[in-house]
Design a protein around this nucleic acid. Structure first.
Lengths: 253, 253
DNA sequence: TGGTCCGGATACATCGGACGTTTCGAGGCG
DNA sequence: CGCCTCGAAACGTCCGATGTATCCGGACCA
């Protein structure tokens, strides 16, 4: 195995074995390189790779640290990876979403605190009567995100977050707004939230299923009938603004 | 943004924009570094990071290529990331599995080819009467993997594959074998397969739910009653043998 | 003609060192 | 006591050189 790969594995093992714990600082690049028996350049490649997948966090002028290793944090890597998917995969993602979103909604009905439910209600109310497409999109993203978090399972929330991103990409959303499907979508949001507020997991699950299936069906109709034109409508990759994968992770106050 | 991060983003954009397609070869390190306006060292850090998450594949003496970008391939990254999770997360993973495995089984009942069903039957039969613990484990892994693939959704299969790994790690499996739970587990496998063979998605879903819930409940009992001892039983991280993340990906014949 | 072997060209792998930039904290100063 | 300055520490970037694996074309032989 190549020297750099050895270093990646070695650092991983230092974490798995408990020698390095979340938040711990790694030895200086020079020292660690010497300890692992390789050059600083090669070690830096390993560190950079682990930083990309959020296992390490590098702070210039300070040092290199092990991140919290929180499932949500590490799952961000998935978002990066999913960004690169061909559009044909979007249907696959949607199918998985159709499995997970209803399950998340059902769990949220059981576990989401009342305060959170009220906050979500406010989120929907704040949108007003005739919101802009951008506002609708932002609200939709936030709505699904909060429900996923409300499930009480960070891993589930992170996976859903990752799968959702490609959906909002491209002209999918624009197509939805144009066909007026978004308006119905917002009504369904209220129904889902009502079910959660009423602590009715099965009702929440049903509405969530209806909600996702609606978009999925629209997507299928876009792809199937006009195989020459529709796929092009999904090709653009101007991702909705989101944090860059390499954003800095600052320490808390 | 740092130079290396710029390079990562630039390469990603080259792929997203279609300038680089799966299987394409990147320019030489020297040329690409010049084009992006950075040193070869810095570029190599970017390439190494993208290689770790399976977006690029580097072949010494040959060149650097864009991988197939197959969902299954990219999702392998998740396995690497999940390896680093604390044991407390295992319960979260299990909950997601409890959602996805039954869904996969139900879809397999609708989509898995008859030949595949027969192959799975052979897999179970080959195990014999009194198999060793290792054989049981291998069979269990393969069984769930084939069902996930049988769902016809590579993304779903990959996510399940990733979530399954931590489960087989540590002494979880040993604990199961000792309590005799494995024997019941094998019987449940047959029930799931029977339902798939009968093309009964709801029955398959039900058996899969029972199957996963059984292990999950056992796990909960391990963790809850004896908070001092049980967690230690989950701590070891001797992963079941699997391909290293950095394995070489050779071209086909 | 066809197959094998060999060597050069190519491209990645690794190294060592040098210098820039950022951060942090110890002291000095008001 | 609080603010400011400055230097040490640590990462960021670059350069040039050498090692190593791969590929390919030409020479050689049956």
């Amino acid at each position: 195995m190549a020297v750099t790969d050895t270093a990646i594995e070695a650092i991983k093992q230092m974490i798995v074995s408990g020698e390095l714990r979340p938040g711990d600082r790694l030895p200086r690049e020079n020292d660690l390189a010497a300890r692992l028996g390789l050059s600083r350049n090669s070690l830096r490649e390993a560190v950079k790779a682990l930083a990309l997948i959020r296992v390490l966090e590098v702070r210039q002028g300070d040092g290199t640290y092990v991140t919290s290793l929180d499932p949500a944090l590490l799952m961000e890597t998935m978002a990066f990876v999913l960004d690169l998917q061909q559009d044909a995969s979007v249907l696959e993602f949607f199918e998985v979403r159709r499995i997970l979103e209803p399950a998340a909604a059902a769990r949220a009905a059981l576990r989401m605190p009342d305060a959170e439910v009220a906050a979500m209600r406010a989120l929907l109310d704040d949108l007003g009567e005739d919101p802009s497409a951008d506002d609708q999109l932002a609200c939709d993203v936030e709505f699904h995100r909060l429900i996923a978090i409300g499930s009480g399972n960070r891993t589930l929330a992170s996976i859903l977050e990752s799968l959702r991103q490609p959906t909002y990409r491209a002209r999918i959303w624009r197509g939805l707004t144009q066909t007026g499907a978004v308006h119905r979508s917002l009504a369904e949001h209220r129904s889902i939230l009502d079910a959660i507020a009423a602590r009715e997991p099965e009702v929440a699950r049903a509405w969530a299923t209806v909600h996702i299936a609606g978009v999925e069906r629209w997507l299928n109709e876009m792809v199937s009938p006009e195989p020459d034109e529709a796929p092009a409508a999904l090709r653009t990759a101007s991702a909705v603004s989101r944090r860059p994968l390499n954003r800095s992770i600052r320490r808390g106050p």
